[in-house]
């Protein structure tokens, strides 16, 4: 969680330095969700797919953090050689399938990954993250229907961070109990906490095991909060929420919560925690340095990877 937090802090700095362009969405405040759920998966076997707030998952799935940050900076050392950017991180080898920019558009792809596992009679589980905003998309309901119809082993996790970009939940969803999205399709559905990493991990293990065993879909609404704005360019948070609300929610910080737990139960000393923080800060500095020193792509690379077996026509 601390790695994600510091990594995202550094991404924000890089954005302000002009090293990152376009849209960038950080995971600050939501770390416990990705970390808790990932802990329940079989590494290199189970599939994960998410939308554009996608830096955290590869960092905890075994991806090379330098290649993640280099991609965010559009460098040739990135996972997609600078062609994807912040919203489109992929590490297929480690079963991370991105990284998608159209709200709700990736949800059938998540069902498709689970379809492939079922088709091949493999016991892989797929986690498909989506936001509360995406939970209104028509294609998401289509995906729920087919996931239930064909018994696809996929867990849809609606990360309810209370805002669809700058629009609060009650202004975009007729029913704000988003876990109920699964019920009309007969999909087992629950609303769960997303801020207490130990509780998240326990819930995740229970549900991942159930899906693997029963080969059926599951829907989870995870309650968390986006400490940051929607994207790095979102400088008007007061238009949709107050400073007081932000301060109140900061008290739910998953990292502070874990630190408090470790302290109260004498599981880790303050010194040890500080040492970990320092170590991670140094590590993130090194990641940043290596990424920023990765070269920009050469102009001719623009034609590569349009097709797997031919180049597109060249020239303007």
């Amino acid at each position: 969680m601390v790695l994600i937090r510091r990594f995202e802090d550094k991404c924000n700095i890089a954005y302000r330095q002009g090293l990152v362009g376009g849209y960038m969405h950080v995971y600050i405040g939501m770390e416990a969700t990705a970390v808790g759920w990932n802990a329940a998966l079989k590494p290199g076997w189970d599939y994960v797919i998410t939308a554009y707030r996608d830096h955290a998952q590869p960092l905890i799935m075994g991806s090379d953090p330098v290649k993640v940050m280099a991609e965010i900076m559009g460098r040739s050392g990135g996972y997609s050689f600078g062609k994807g950017g912040s919203m489109h991180i992929y590490d297929i080898e480690n079963c991370f399938f991105g990284g998608w920019g159209i709200v709700g558009g990736h949800t059938p792809l998540g069902a498709g990954l689970a379809f492939a596992a079922k088709y091949r009679k493999e016991d892989r589980v797929t986690i498909c993250y989506l936001g509360d905003g995406a939970s209104n998309a028509g294609v998401f309901f289509e995906s729920l229907n087919m996931a239930a119809l064909w018994d696809l082993p996929v867990i849809f996790i609606i990360e309810n961070n209370e805002f669809a970009m700058g629009t609060r939940l009650e202004y975009h969803a007729a029913d704000t109990q988003l876990y109920k999205r699964g019920e009309p399709f007969g999909i087992k559905s629950e609303r769960l906490d997303g801020m207490d990493v130990l509780q998240v991990k326990a819930d995740a293990e229970r549900i991942v095991n159930w899906v693997r065993e029963n080969q059926k879909p599951y829907l989870v609404e995870v309650m968390n909060y986006r400490f940051a704005g929607h994207g790095a360019a979102d400088n008007d948070r007061q238009l949709y929420r107050t400073k007081e609300e932000e301060d109140e929610n900061t008290k739910r910080d998953p990292i502070a919560r874990l630190e408090k737990y470790l302290t109260e139960n004498n599981l880790m000393t303050a010194e040890k925690m500080e040492a970990i923080n320092v170590e991670i800060e140094e590590r993130v500095e090194a990641i940043y340095e290596e990424a920023v020193n990765s070269p920009h792509p050469e102009p001719h690379e623009v034609y590569a990877h349009v097709y797997s077996d031919m180049e597109p026509e060249k020239g303007h």
Binding site: I49, I92, F97, G105, H106, T107, P108, L109, G110, A111, G112, L113, A114, F115, A116, Y119, V139, E142, S143, N145, M146
Partner: peptide, 11 residues
């Protein structure tokens, strides 16, 4: 929906 499922499977 089904085109998206096919794409995910194809990946």
């Amino acid at each position: 929906g089904f085109t998206g499922i096919a794409i995910g499977a194809a990946m």
